[in-house]
Design a protein around this nucleic acid. Structure first.
Length: 299
DNA sequence: ATCCAGGCTCCTG
DNA sequence: CAGGAGCATGGA
């Protein structure tokens, strides 16, 4: 079946700023951007819904869905929720910009990227996996590994001669072996970590809804218990998936480099320096981090 | 060739 | 708890 609808956007929203972040890697394999339209395959139970998103006008996005058997109104609701989470459409940015105004580092970025939303990763398994993959390797290589994992083990549909992919399900990854993952250039450790996470999740011992019931600090402690998930990864997931605004991956090299550049330092700032610097950001540390990451994109 | 990359675990002191 | 070694491997 096919359906189309409009999704209202919040007052402070810049679709093209979001597109720029989404388009940051040519190796991205979970969605495509073409003519300012985002095309992706959204797993919704048995349905793998082909979703096209484009800007309709200043107040809304135009959403087109196809390839589903579920009830139309159910699909519209689910896809709406998915996009609102992905593009963070339900957050008011007014307070963030007030905080940014008083921060020498953030003020210019807030102006430059006005309307940019914290692009998330709604799937818990995907966000955890991506955080593990991204540990201590350059982003290009991380995207390459993700692509191999997705193309080999993710559900795919061919539409207009192009393959669209869903991130692999935990049940699938739980059944893989370390050697299989090493063959697509996971390190042994990362292969162990991601299979372990997949096993925990496929057994239902870790779910996003469960995690969402915890406070930020409780959730962080829960995540850090998982082998392969340290403080950086936990904060990354809480920032991009569970969407705690105070999540702050302070050990992040990209954050360090962005601060170094923004502050005109000759060295990367120390963790202590960053702690002090970020203190006034209060509950907007996740957004601040995201804007700093975005400042590293050129062009 | 050398250093770096969106770190983590495990071991010491 | 803080600090450090070892890990693993492509990119620039």
């Amino acid at each position: 079946m096919t359906t189309a609808f409009q999704l209202k956007t919040p007052p402070i929203f810049d679709y093209e700023a979001c597109l720029k972040f989404l388009g940051r890697s040519p190796l991205e394999c979970l969605f495509r951007i073409e003519d300012k339209t985002i095309k992706t395959l959204y797993p919704f139970g048995e349905d793998k819904i082909f979703v096209k998103i484009c800007q309709q006008n200043d107040t809304g996005l135009s959403i087109h869905c196809s390839g589903f058997n579920s009830d139309e109104s159910t699909v519209i609701e689910a896809v709406s929720q998915y996009i609102r989470q992905w593009l963070d459409l339900d957050t008011s940015l007014v307070d963030f910009y007030n905080v940014a105004k008083n921060s020498p580092v953030l003020a210019p970025l807030a102006k430059q990227f006005h309307g940019l939303r914290l692009i998330g990763i709604p799937s818990l398994f995907e966000s955890l996996s991506w955080s593990v993959i991204g540990q201590q390797i350059n982003l290009k290589f991380a995207y390459t590994i993700k692509k191999r994992l997705v193309e080999n083990y993710g559900y795919s549909v061919n539409i207009d001669n192009i393959n669209y992919y869903c991130f692999p399900e935990p049940e699938v990854v739980a059944g893989l072996t370390i050697d299989i993952l090493k063959a697509i250039q996971f390190s042994r450790q990362k292969a162990e970590y991601i299979i372990g996470i997949a096993q925990i999740m496929s057994k239902g011992q870790l779910t996003k809804s469960h995690l969402a019931q915890f406070s930020f600090d409780e959730a962080r402690k829960e995540l850090v218990k998982i082998k392969g998930v340290g403080n950086w990864s936990a904060n990354y997931v809480l920032m991009k998936c569970v969407r705690h605004p105070q999540a702050f991956p302070i050990e992040d090299v990209g954050l360090h480099n962005a601060l170094k550049f923004q502050l005109g330092l000759d060295k990367k700032p120390s963790i202590d320096t960053i702690k002090q610097l970020a203190e006034p950001w209060g509950n907007w540390k996740a957004y601040a981090t995201f804007y700093l990451w975005h400042s590293l994109l050129n062009g």
